[in-house]
Design a protein around this nucleic acid. Structure first.
Lengths: 235, 235
DNA sequence: CGCGGCCTTGATCGCACTCAATTCTAGTGG
DNA sequence: CCACTAGAATTGAGTGCGATCAAGGCCGCG
């Protein structure tokens, strides 16, 4: 059993009114009177690579919004192996299940440095009783989560290893520069697509050899996508 | 390309107040004044086996509640093959994405006879502006959908063919009598777990041979589960 | 009885897994 | 600056599981 290490640092109480990414997040269209309803502290917390934001089965009392960084959601399957069920990025919300369940459904683990706003469930409930605007935002998040989950199943877990790896690369393109993709450790990629890390490595190498992608570092994480068509139409 | 056949029959306008399964569905805790807000007709519609309740990419204007029967949600993947992303049963809600998106995210197809309440999106929106109770119900549904999707990925699409088939059988147990399971065509089972129909057939036969399950009909749909432990702990 | 649809079973092939060795990088300390 | 190390990625060889191709059986139905 691998020991669970939780490394985090409190960075202060968040000032939601002046949040830099407020237009992306849950509180986007709250007004001044809404903010006055917040009676519990919303903390700004930083996690380092590999740290656990929360764990499957742990008591769930907070919803988190990702300010910066990338987080993987991991479900632990019966025989001890782990399965990555989703990847979440800046602006995404994790732990929404805390609103209904008293435990979290999955592990949330930082991939690199991550900072989050940790919002007590009580705050969400108070606000949502008062503000129909927050309701819409919340349901929008749920919708996004379901769509992502279905997408994950339909594209990343389907077809040959070659196709799966191509789809991971395409999925991990940068939103602002789609010619660049940052992918994960070969093991994580395998856990996302139900492949072994050696198979993932082989297929990545093959795409490089065929000229569809080009490494931008020496550790196999950042690539330039030179021929997206080719990746898309992998037979 | 397989022609899409839509077969349905209008069974009347639903009387939600006296609905037989009202305690299971979205409108469970509405009161009389809430019902008076419903200004568009909620139809009660029947579909026969193989009929399409709605299609991926079609214009989305209704949310449906399943009164009786079973429905499969299917995403069509690039190369023409189809992938079943979820199975929904009595009391479940389908097409929730209509609240946000103007198209449906997947095909919904009847497995056997199905009857549904077809609720216009406008009705949900009106009610949800007025009734925080409906809000909670809606989010509960979203939560269930996400959890089901993740579960699907973590249990049905993981491990050997033997394990996947075992997990499908366990998942399809009757809620009231867990010793009975009704499974689907071998092709549908394959599309759920990313296996070929021949492989599914072989593994089902093997479980029968090993005495873990016992056929209750001659067409390979209903089985008695004799040794759930064995299915659970398939190595 | 013949037909079509689905399930089952058999034989063979190939892709991804397994086991294993090697290379590369970043980090550490002399 | 180089030696050393740990961790990750890469590459190779051989195996096995599930896909593929193909044949046959069973059930329901006209």
């Amino acid at each position: 059993m691998i020991p669970i290490h939780i490394e985090h640092a409190w960075k202060g109480t968040a000032d939601c009114r002046n949040c830099g990414i407020r237009d992306m997040v849950l509180f986007a269209d709250l007004n001044e009177s809404d903010f006055n309803l917040i009676h519990a502290p919303i903390d700004d917390i930083a996690f380092s690579n590999g740290a656990e934001l929360f764990g499957e089965g742990r008591q769930a009392g907070h919803v988190m919004t990702i300010r910066t960084g990338v987080v993987k959601l991991v479900r632990n399957v019966a025989d001890g192996r782990a399965r990555i069920v989703r990847i979440l990025k800046t602006g995404d919300v994790i732990g929404l299940e805390a609103l209904f369940s008293d435990v979290y459904d999955a592990d949330a683990i930082a991939l690199g440095d991550v900072s989050v706003c940790k919002i007590p469930v009580a705050v969400i409930k108070d606000l949502s009783a008062a503000s129909p605007r927050l309701h819409m935002r919340l349901m929008e998040r749920w919708h996004r989560a379901v769509k992502e989950a279905d997408d994950w199943l339909a594209t990343l877990n389907f077809g040959t290893a070659r196709q799966r790896v191509a789809n991971i690369i395409l999925k991990m393109r940068h939103p602002n520069d789609p010619t660049i993709a940052t992918i994960f450790s070969r093991e994580d990629m395998g856990s996302m697509s139900d492949l072994k890390l050696e198979t993932v490595s082989r297929e990545v190498s093959r795409w490089v050899k065929e000229g569809a992608i080009e490494p931008l570092d020496k550790i196999g994480r950042r690539y330039r996508i030179k021929d997206p068509e080719k990746l898309q139409n992998a037979e």
